[in-house]
Amino acid sequence: MKLGPRVIKTGIAVTLALYICSVLNLESAVFAGIAAIFTLQPSIYGTWKQVRNQVQTNILGAFIAFLGLYFLGNDPLSIGLVIIILISISLKLKMGETISLTVVTVLAIMSAPGNEDWIFALNRFIVTFIGMATALLVNIFVYPPNYKKNYVKKMNDVFQNISILMRTAISDELTEKTFKEQMEQVENDILLLEEQFKLFDEEREKMAKVNKMDVREIVVFKQMFKSLQQGFIVLEDIDSFYFTCKPTPKENQLFDLHLEYLIKYHELFLLKYDGKIKMDEPSLEDEFMKQTEAFLEKVMQSYNEDHKIEMAVIGASIYNYAFQLDRLNTLVEQYRKKSQ
């Protein structure tokens, strides 16, 4: 079983929160651990945003809990009523994401012994904030997220899977079960990659002073994602429409060769980003799109009217894929030249 950095950081944050409460002789340290678990997020900015939002809602929750203690007491019915009021106010103020920990805070405060209500409640309130602060510090200093490395690795993994599917889509070498499983895996990976890019871009935008990132490189990463996404759409369209057109062996070869051509250059453009191959000659961009246009012209000439629509759908997907790759090549070229 492989433990990811977030799992390890959660364990460390809980441990430190409990230890700090023990050193400060604060009671109910378990609430610090709960707060640390709720607060820790995949990104540093996400954790900071969670702390900020939790501080706001916890102050609100503590205030409502103190009022509830003063006017209603701490019997189960009163606690339930206060929680209903708190959730309603939180949703009204669009603070729904932080309701869980705020409810825990209210429960912690309102379950204080009768003769020590305020002291005990304040203790639990402080303990909760210790847990949140610990989660933030752990996320900053323990295994700080390497967004660029994680994104590039995931992107290369997705490309390798798309490459296998693209090279076997027409030849139909994979079993139907394997092809479907691989397609589902790629679809899920693309969704995860999109989430990683959002974290990456958010971190770059919100914490530019802490993590300096080249905006040009962010644009390249976004185009990498678009290219993968369009490659997957090509695979979906081929799976849905191609074989219903009953292609001949010659037509299969035509498609197979051009898909191989596209995936080859997709790989070259990614290697170019890594600085592993030489920069293009100026004529490559024009040649790349001309090859695709020539391919589509042959396709539309070879099929009869009964299958023109299906071929037009597949042809449009392939043309868009080539366009996205051409755009990727241009952006990588610009990025590499300015970096040098």
Results as ranks from 00 to 15, higher is better:
residue 239 D to A: 14
residue 94 K to G: 00
residue 62 A to H: 05
residue 162 I to K: 04
residue 228 L to S: 01
residue 275 G to K: 11
residue 63 F to I: 14
residue 43 S to Y: 08
residue 42 P to Y: 11
residue 187 E to F: 11
residue 95 M to W: 06
residue 274 D to P: 09
residue 4 G to K: 07
residue 100 S to F: 13
residue 90 S to E: 09
residue 155 M to F: 01
residue 176 E to I: 11
residue 128 T to F: 13
residue 239 D to E: 13
residue 44 I to Y: 11
residue 46 G to R: 04
residue 256 D to M: 00
residue 139 N to H: 03
residue 10 T to H: 05
residue 146 N to V: 03
residue 107 L to M: 06
residue 267 E to P: 04
residue 208 A to L: 12
residue 325 L to D: 03
residue 7 V to R: 01
residue 120 F to R: 13
residue 332 V to H: 09
residue 293 E to R: 15
residue 148 K to N: 01
residue 120 F to M: 15
residue 156 N to I: 12
residue 66 F to K: 07
residue 281 E to H: 15
residue 273 Y to A: 12
residue 167 R to P: 00
residue 249 P to F: 08
residue 241 F to E: 02
residue 333 E to S: 14
residue 235 L to C: 01
residue 306 D to W: 06
residue 329 N to Y: 14
residue 110 M to K: 04
residue 45 Y to K: 04
residue 107 L to G: 07
residue 23 V to A: 03
residue 3 L to D: 03
residue 252 N to K: 06
residue 128 T to M: 13
residue 175 T to F: 09
residue 150 N to Q: 11
residue 158 V to I: 13
residue 256 D to A: 01
residue 118 W to C: 10
residue 52 R to W: 04
residue 114 G to M: 12
residue 206 K to W: 07
residue 45 Y to I: 06
residue 155 M to Q: 06
residue 239 D to G: 08
residue 183 M to H: 05
residue 330 T to Y: 15
residue 211 N to I: 15
residue 92 K to D: 00
residue 142 V to E: 00
residue 172 D to N: 08
residue 201 D to S: 06
residue 61 G to W: 11
residue 296 L to S: 08
residue 166 M to D: 03
residue 237 D to K: 15
residue 273 Y to K: 12
residue 211 N to P: 05
residue 64 I to S: 04
residue 116 E to N: 15
residue 331 L to M: 07
residue 64 I to Y: 09
residue 46 G to L: 02
residue 331 L to P: 03
residue 119 I to A: 13
residue 303 Y to A: 07
residue 294 A to V: 05
residue 39 T to R: 09
residue 72 L to R: 07
residue 137 L to W: 04
residue 303 Y to W: 07
residue 334 Q to K: 14
residue 13 A to S: 04
residue 209 K to W: 15
residue 174 L to T: 02
residue 8 I to D: 00
residue 271 L to S: 12
residue 246 K to G: 05
residue 289 M to C: 07
residue 98 T to V: 02
